[in-house]
Design a protein around this nucleic acid. Sequence first.
DNA 1: CGCGGGTTTGATGATGCTCAAGCCCGGTGG
DNA 2: CCACCGGGCTTGAGCATCATCAAACCCGCG
Lengths: 193, 193
Amino acid sequence: MYEQLEKSIGEKVTLSTEEFELCKTFFIPKKIRKKQTLLLEGDVCTYNAFVEKGILRSYTTDEKGHENVIQFAFEGWWITDLSSFLTGGNSTYTIEALEDSELLLLTTTARESLMNAIPAFESYQRLLLQNAYIALQTRINSALTATAEEKYLKLTTYYPDIVTRIPQHMVASYLGLTPETLSRVRKQINLRK
Amino acid sequence: MYEQLEKSIGEKVTLSTEEFELCKTFFIPKKIRKKQTLLLEGDVCTYNAFVEKGILRSYTTDEKGHENVIQFAFEGWWITDLSSFLTGGNSTYTIEALEDSELLLLTTTARESLMNAIPAFESYQRLLLQNAYIALQTRINSALTATAEEKYLKLTTYYPDIVTRIPQHMVASYLGLTPETLSRVRKQINLRK
DNA sequence: CGCGGGTTTGATGATGCTCAAGCCCGGTGG
DNA sequence: CCACCGGGCTTGAGCATCATCAAACCCGCG
């Protein structure tokens, strides 16, 4: 149940066995079924969720009821509405499971305590955030400059899993395309092979 | 010379006077003139720069020699090519001054030492990064869903300074628009007033 | 005074969206 | 077990937004 977490932390910092055992005690394990929500837009996001198994997505809903995917989270990733989680304000995102999933939840206070108890955990969080930030910057750049096809090709080469495990229309939304456009893009790509 | 830095740190964490004095010693003050570059694409980014005075921008250059603005940094902001700075790889961004500017530079090693010497500084860095990450997420959302006019209006209400202190064509680039389109958008907005 | 970069304006065209319909396929109930 | 239903993916036609190309304008600066 904590394999992915141990792996993820181990990639960034080193914890002793005792530290990791202590670390575990701050998390709340939770199973969630496909299509269930971990967070509803408008609620306060009280958890930072680590995905041990499954996939989650966060998305906003605009005035027309149109969903807009912000992030996918596979095994070994974190997901939350960071703004709401940190400030305690209302969330603008909804977080939902795309498969039956197993999560490890960290509340705001547990997170603070954990960072105090194990300083390396703060480093771990900072390092994760740094990588996430870099990834977002390149995503912005691609969103602003690339064509539909380029965006899709970049995505599939970086994250091949996305294509196989996630419904097309959600991928389209993540890329800022309509489902119709993504369908046509895929057709074009296949025709050329 | 350290007013903005003191203010920025003070907004996130509390440092004693001695700690802040110690903190200062890790930075290298540097003045840079308008149009000079702090970092050239392809070089290794050895500094994380804090802007005491002036404005900088980071941008990429694509195959066609077209510049694409990633970020602006006003007084009190940080700017760097985070990926290059952290990994030591070649940078993909160029960083350039838009006005005569005063910077405080932090090398990779100085940053590590500083975080060790003053743990609160690591918290400060993490908190900054959290906010930057949240801002980037909303920027992505806007980039993917908003029209040209919506993007521009959001930007001007959030950062009124940008309009007055930054050339139009760079604002256009930041928003992923051509200069012509931004010009027309502004015209439309003015006609309606 | 003239040069040059930046902004504006115009005409045209391409990319991707909207609206609408058909298809494929898996799940459900008779 | 089969027929039906519905969601998601595909296909098509027309359209809107924004990009491109080109030229004129404006204004600060040498």
